[in-house]
Structure formats: C-alpha cells, structure tokens
Nucleic acid binder design. Structure first.
Length: 645
RNA sequence: GCUGAUGUAGCUCAGGGGUAGAGCACUUGCUUGGUAAGUAAGAGGUCACGGGUUCAAUUCCCGUCAUUAGCUCCA
C-alpha cells in the first residue's frame, strides 16, 4: 500500500500501481471524465501512469494551466497523425504546447502546403478525435528508439534521440501514430471537441537560421465549441484595437514607402497628441528639477567608440556618414547618452551641483532588421523621452526613487492600472558580454532591488536581461486585453562616466566619479502612443484626446452660433470642433460616436434661444442641459482629476 | 535578413490576358432637420515599381520596394 496526499490534505491509502485516473474514479465519475493529466510530486504525469510510491497528487483538468498544456500537446500529436495520413512521408520535427494552443514543425518534403490546406487537416483531426484514440506511453531503449526512427527515415527525431540519455526515452502512440515524446498526454482524444488551425509559418529547425526552414502549423483546441468561438472573438477584438488600424482611422500617423520602412510620419492629430504628452512630462520633470538640453542628430564616430556603443552595436547600426574632404565619420545617433555625457563634461562640477538632470526628447535611429519592424512599436527612427541623471553614490537610491515616482505618475495619468516592474540583472553564468567591474555591478543591482522594494512595486527579476553597461528596471505594462509591453525604463550606469572620465570635486577637494542614471518613463513616444492606443482602444483620456468636444449644429442656421461657442470653449482651454456639414443630426452624432470624440453639444433653436448646451457623452448618450460655465467646469474637473499627482 | 501571404480610388475591399468596379469618404444640387447612416448627380485609378512572355499584361513569369504572419515558446 502507498499513501496519496491530495491537495486538500486528505490522504488515501491505495495499492502500489494505482493511477491518478483510478484515484479520480474513486472520487467521482464526473471528475474522472474531466481529468487530462495529474501532478505527481510536482511533476506532470499521464493520468494513467501507475504510481508506485507515497506521493502528493493533484488532478489536472482544463481549468489548470498544466491541464490545458496537456490537451494542447496531445492535440499537436493528433495533428501530426492527421498530417501523416494526408501527406504520407512528411518528416516531423517538434510539436509543443504554447501559451495559446500548440504548433508542430513539419518538413513537407516535396509537398506544398498552404493556408488553404488547413481546413482539410482540421477535418481529419476532428474525425480522429471522435474515435477517442487512447494515448499509450512506452519506455524504450535508445537503440530501439533509433531503430524505429531510422526505419521511418526521420532525421529530426534521430538528431533529438542522439542527444538523449539511454533509459530516459519514452514514446507515445495514439491510433496509427507514434512519436518520440516526454509526455504527458491526456487519456484519450475524446475531450478535444473544437479544433482550429490558425496559421502556417516558416520556422528554422532548432531556431537556427543556418538550418533548414520547416513549415510550422499553429492550432488551438478546446473541450467546448463555445470556448473556441469566444477565443476567436477575443482575437477579433484584439484586431479591432490594433494601433496600426486605429492610427490610420483616427489620422494619428502614417508610413510612406518613399520615406522608408520603419520611419513613422506623425499626422497633425497625432502630433498634437504627442505634443500634449511631451508637455505633460516636461512639466512633471520641470517640477522635479530637470534641465532640458538639446543635442544634434548625428555624432562623431569617436563619441561612440568612447561610449562603447560602436563596438557593441556598430554592425547593427546605420552606416557612417563620411564628410567629403576630411573623411571624418559620423553616425546617426542611436542613443542620447554620449551627447549628454559631453554636456556634463563641458564645465567642472562640484558636489554642490549634483545631482544634475539633463532631459531631452531626443530622436534616435537604430537599424532594425526589416522583418522586425512593426507599426509604431518597433521602428527605425523614434523619439525617446530621455534624461540622464548624474549623481553621487549616496544619492543613487533617492534619485532612483524619484524617477520611479514620475513613472508611476505617468502610468496613473494614462490609466494603466496593471503593470509589473521587471528587474533585469546580469546573466548568472555568461558575464563576458557586460562591461564594467563586478563590484560596481553588485552595487547597482542592489540599489535597484532596494528601491523597488521600498516603492512597493510589483516586481519580477529576470537574469540575463540587463543592458551591457548596467542593470535596469523596466516597466512592463499590460494593455486592456492582457498583452504585456515594455514601456518605461530606468537604468543605473557606472560605466559611461568611467569611459567619458566624468568627474566632480567632492567636499574633500578630491576628484570623484559620478554615477549616471538613464531613464525614460514613456520609453519612446512611438511605442508609448502605440500601446496607449491599444490600451484605450482609441478612446483617449479626456486631457489627451485630439478633439474633446464636437459641436453639432442642428441645421446650417446655427453654424455661426456654434463657431462662437467653439471660441468660448477655447477660452476655457477646451478643444472643440464644429461639424458644420449639411447633414442631419443623426448622421453627425453617428460619425462623432465612431470618431470617439468624448463629448458632443447638440445646438438648435432651443439651445441658441435659451443660451444652454444639450450635452451628449460618447458611448453613453444624452446628459441633459448645461450652461456654458457648468459644462466648462465639468470638463476642467474631469481633466484635472486625470492628471493629478 | 529568411520563409509564406499581400499590394487595385483617400479608406475597406471585389474583379480579372482585350487599358477597371462596389460601399464609405470627397464635390455639387435638393432638403434645414432634435440624439447612431436623408436624397440625387458628379469627380476621383500608370491596378506599388522595374523587367520578361504575348498581337495585347493591371491580370502570367522574374526582380525590387513596401505591408503582414512566423522565425522567442524546444522531444
């Protein structure tokens, strides 16, 4: 007899060799039907695998992440079976579960496979799933595994087996399909009720571009058709708030083939919004003791050799610009820090001057591989809301905290509630890729950990994600539909002051080296606006939105009255536009609703006569009558509420 | 960069070896309205760019540029 401890602490005494499924059956048949796999002593197992020693056991169903992964992994095998049936002789590489579904990498040999063929595979999978094919686990020797896949002529599996240790190899079979697999798998294919193959893409064998490119098929399965429908609806909703689509519709930005890939062009409305964001941050920075500086878009190659960026990024950067006569080399600036270091160095500094904080909305250029470009989130020219703080050792933590405060203020004002601070430290093993001394790294890493703890941030530590010159704190922001983006960043740097030989004179009349903090609360204007658009689905906070109020005259008779109204609102710093088109009021309201303008004023005979405003709120409807003063006050209050410290 | 898909009016898209079409937007006329689409007419295109095949190419082929999905999830 062995003892099985269940999650609620209950202990069951059962015969050795009892499976998780047996335990489930002893609890209830309904539960047993839903079991996909089981966690035995912390390891995910097949529900049917015999347990032979005292163990903790939790049964995994569709409601557990591991349960989902089990079903998706099994679905990948099911797809492989369907593919082998429809395309005999295809070579299979790997097929794991992923965050949303699964994929399988396939070498289609001489077959051609396109998106149009997905349906056919999907149908075959459905047919197979209905047969409730049982997944059988088998431990095999390395020799047997090699023999099986040699016979099958599958080079990918053979390569994988050769790297495995004898005695640890397992195979799984369902129906007519056998695969090398660590498992676990669900008991049988029955619970796979809804199947959708989503896309076909290329992927290199083992992720290495020198290897052969295989065909990757992505899919997802569910135990209920309704869940699939809901999933597809969520995908559709995400598409609807894609910043590339909304950016076009709301006339915020565009791209031009002639200007070049990855070089965004900001349209008037987008620029106005961007300027508003910039002024908002400038004010916060002004209040926090920052000084604005301004530096050129190019810098001498030597500047970047000194900073170390040339060595690190030279090949990835744009090519140097050569002067015609002197043959000097300049680079488009990939970052602002070296310029700011030279500003610091332009005059002697005393400890009494520190900290100095140089801020610049600096446009930088970086060469991104053409395939990496993506809307406004990954571009080749972008503007950082950059600043560099030069301070003394004993000021680092306080400065760091102040920066965290600004970032928190920015995120709050734009209604980002849900974010994580990711502390990026050095790779634990491979330390060659970082510049600077171990001692300085230790100090900087500790400073970040301490301050984030004190600021009460929700943090996660990532090793190996640090910049090459120092550790950093990145703000990972979740948008409204749960996707995570890296926006603001704060980085401690002991290295650049060293390389630029920056100094200050201490109270002891000795020269000391300042410490540098890089920071950008938005990250870049481009990425921030992109994420903001997706976060609010184009319905910007009132303080930021391009047009706050649309004035809709009921007929052309009231156009002049409305123009005057617009001017009056301007005196209250309210941005209003008059829709003076020759259209009916229903049409004007509909168009304004679709443009997501927050407020509408409907002006006809009654309003013009009584000197009142009929107010309508976007998405909500009629709010009733207001006087101009009442309305202006309402708007101003709402704006102040949003950008309060 | 690699692989696939895509590129037709300002936007969203249909079409197809014999020099192009819809809806919305735009212009003009009628209409002057009460909280999500009034009505009629009109204008608008080197079918991304360059080459090839053909009597004829926007359509087929090749190349370039751009957009897009994936190449990060590891039996």
């Amino acid at each position: 007899m062995i003892k099985i401890t269940l999650p609620d602490g209950a202990i069951k005494e059962v015969d050795s060799g009892t499976s998780a499924m047996d335990v489930a059956l002893s609890i209830s048949e309904g539960l047993a039907r839903n079991v996909l796999s089981a966690k035995v002593n912390g390891e995910v197992w097949d529900a049917s695998r015999p347990i032979t020693e005292d163990s903790t056991l939790s049964l995994l169903t569709w409601n557990d992440e591991e349960g989902k992964a089990t079903m998706w992994h099994s679905s990948a095998h099911l797809m492989a079976e369907a593919l082998e049936f429809l395309y005999p002789g295809v070579k299979l590489a790997i097929g794991p579960p992923i965050e949303n579904g699964f994929y399988y990498d396939i070498d289609f040999m001489d077959y051609t496979f396109s998106e149009n063929d997905l349906k056919k595979v999907e149908d075959k999978m459905k047919e197979l799933a209905k047969q409730k094919l049982v997944f059988e686990r088998k431990e095999v020797s390395k020799a047997d595994a090699l023999a099986y896949f040699t016979e099958k002529e599958d080079p990918y599996k053979l390569e994988l087996i050769n790297e495995l240790e004898d005695g640890t190899i397992t195979m799984y079979t369902q129906g007519n399909f056998t695969d090398l697999c660590r498992g676990p798998h669900m008991p049988h294919t029955g619970p796979i009720k809804a199947i959708k193959l989503l896309s076909v893409a290329g992927a290199y064998w083992r992720g290495d571009e020198k290897n052969k490119q295989l065909t990757r098929i992505y899919g997802i399965t569910f135990p209920k058709a309704k869940e699939l429908t809901e999933y597809l609806e969520r995908l559709e909703a995400a598409k609807q708030r894609d910043h590339r689509k909304l950016g076009k519709e709301l006339e915020l930005f565009t791209f031009s083939q002639k200007v070049g890939a990855g070089l965004p062009l900001w349209l008037p409305k987008g620029t106005a919004l961007r300027e508003r964001l910039i002024n908002f941050l400038k004010k916060a920075q002004d209040d926090s003791g920052y000084d604005q500086v301004c530096t050129p878009h190019i810098g001498h190659k030597d500047l970047y050799v000194t900073s170390g960026h040339y060595e690190k990024y030279g090949a990835d950067s744009f090519q140097p610009i050569k002067t015609p006569n002197e043959d000097e080399e300049f680079l488009l600036k990939p970052m602002n820090c070296p310029h700011h270091c030279e500003i610091y160095a332009s005059s002697p500094k005393s400890y009494k001057d520190l900290p100095v904080r140089y801020a610049e909305f600096g446009t930088v250029y970086r060469y991104e591989m053409s395939g990496e470009l993506h809307g406004l989130t990954r571009v080749r020219g972008f503007t950082q809301d950059d600043a560099h703080i030069f301070c003394m050792e004993n000021q680092v933590e306080e400065e760091f905290e102040k920066v965290i405060d600004i970032v928190k203020y920015v995120l709050k004002s734009l209604d980002f509630q849900d974010y994580t601070a990711q502390i990026s430290l050095r790779d634990k093993d491979n330390r060659d890729k970082y510049i600077g001394t171990d001692e300085n790294w230790e100090k900087a890493e500790q400073a970040i950990i301490n301050t984030t703890k004190r600021a009460g941030l929700n943090t996660v530590i990532e090793y190996g994600e640090a910049a090459f010159y120092g550790p950093k704190l990145d703000f990972m922001v979740k948008d409204a539909i749960g996707r995570s983006w890296q926006l603001g960043t704060i980085q401690v740097d002991y290295t650049l002051p060293e390389r630029f030989e920056l100094e200050y004179t201490g109270a002891d009349n000795q020269k000391h080296r300042p410490i540098m903090i890089h920071r950008a609360p938005f990250g870049s204007m481009e990425r921030f606006v992109a994420v903001l658009i997706e976060h609010c689905a184009g319905k910007f906070p009132l303080w930021l939105t391009p047009t706050q109020v649309a004035i809709l005259p009921l007929s052309e008779k009231y156009n002049d009255y409305c123009q005057n109204l617009s001017k009056s609102l301007k005196n209250y710093d309210i941005r209003a536009l008059v829709d003076d088109r020759n259209e009916k009021i229903g049409k004007k309201i509909r168009d304004t609703e679709l443009e997501k303008t927050p407020y509408m004023l409907i002006i006809g005979e009654k309003e013009a006569g009584d000197n009142v405003l009929a107010v309508r709120k976007q998405g909500e409807g009629d709010l009733g009558s207001f006087t101009l003063e009442e309305f202006a006050k309402k708007i101003q209050q709402e704006v102040e509420e949003q950008i309060k410290y």
